[in-house]
Design a protein around this nucleic acid. Structure first.
Lengths: 211, 211
DNA sequence: TACAATACTATCTATTTAGTTACTTATTTA
DNA sequence: TAAATAAGTAACTAAATAGATAGTATTGTA
């Protein structure tokens, strides 16, 4: 007697995606198991190959979705109408909060860098998904500079990377750092302290030089 | 007819260590293969189990050696006799240069964080290997503060992590960042630019507030 | 309602995996 | 120098691995 299960390709695809995201984020590409992904999704392994081709292509798809997600969130943030200082403050807060709430993205990125970005290099989609923040910061930095609030000639790309750095590194390496320092760096108060420090560093750097 | 090879346990152990470091750094723990390590080392797999127990213990040993190495280099750096500003400058330069020249360490750390530091948690050795920089910076920051060159009440641990952040994140994520920005961020000039930016950020942050 | 296309299941397979067994050869030390 | 100990080799194994085969069930559409 066969199961009288309804068919639902969209649901199946999504189940596979969610399971794959979790599995790749937990063990990296090398540690992830196709059988485990199928089991976590509660689907037949054949479906995974049917919809996504193979493990490599599935990993790329997971990366594409992850980039899509962060870009969507970035676009929702409305920094244009804030003062330069508030815009920077919000940018740091967002970056910290996003990576804290979505640690899988950092894990996927770290893993993709282990593989020297070989997957995302193949993806036109990802290369076209520019973060709105770089152009936005170009404008914010100019505004701040003209108002005499920010230092001159800050490179927006370096700046964007630096904002990411101070938030991302702490969150991504929180396990080894906590072990080394013998201090729970992921406690609520430690996280608040870190975010405040990040804001201090970024705004401190931006203050115009003497005068 | 048997080989008339001389025996050399120290050499064999070191060959295994080197091969394991390379293999773990390339594919992470999950992507590394014990057979490949043995092949790279040019030794019999049995020897690997003989000297290191199993894959997990070997990975921990590789981590211990990597921490040992960076600590040794850190200790060689003589920051005590520099002015506060020069000491900070040298700290940033060292951090950037070390991770650039020893990318395996970042790869191992990223991977260890994937596993939530489960290996190094078991290692008393690593927990005892404190970086001399934290205590050193405590002093440097105080000196700078008293001389009116640095802002007040900078937390040395946050500061140390931030210095690591701006250098490490760029170098660790250089492949994805280069792909996203369509810009070769590992070129010689790009690296110089980044290092200068890092120094600017750290010293900019440290400048005392108005007055 | 026929029938082609797609969703889906169960089962198989060649290879690779971490770790072992059984053995030989070189070195140390009683 | 005998016997214990440690270094080393070759071949094996049980389980896990990515992916394939061969089929059945459900759907949209001619």
């Amino acid at each position: 007697m066969a199961k009288a299960t309804k068919r639902n390709p969209e649901r199946t695809k999504e189940l596979i995606h969610k399971a794959a995201l979790a599995e790749f984020a937990e063990g990296g590409y090398g540690g992830a198991r196709v059988d485990t992904i199928a089991a976590r999704a509660g689907i037949n392994k054949r479906m995974l190959y049917h919809y996504y081709g193979n493990k490599d292509d599935l990993f790329l798809y997971v990366l594409e979705r992850a980039y899509e997600k962060i870009r969507t969130h970035e676009e929702k943030l409305d920094l244009e109408n804030l003062s330069p200082e508030d815009a920077v403050r919000e940018l740091v807060k967002f970056t910290f909060k996003y990576h804290h709430d979505n640690p899988e993205f950092m894990r996927l990125l770290n893993n993709e860098n282990l593989y020297k970005a070989e997957h995302i290099k193949k993806s036109k989609k990802i290369k076209q998904m520019h973060s709105p923040f770089v152009d936005l910061m170009k404008d914010v930095l100019k505004r701040g500079e003209k108002a005499g609030e920010f230092r001159k000639n800050v490179d927006p790309v370096q700046f964007y990377i630096t904002v990411a750095s101070v938030a991302y590194f702490y969150l991504s390496n929180v396990y080894t750092l906590s072990t080394i320092f013998g201090r729970k760096l992921s406690s609520k108060t430690a996280l608040e302290e870190r975010l405040n420090h990040c804001i201090d560093v970024i705004l401190g750097y931006l203050r115009p030089k003497s005068g």
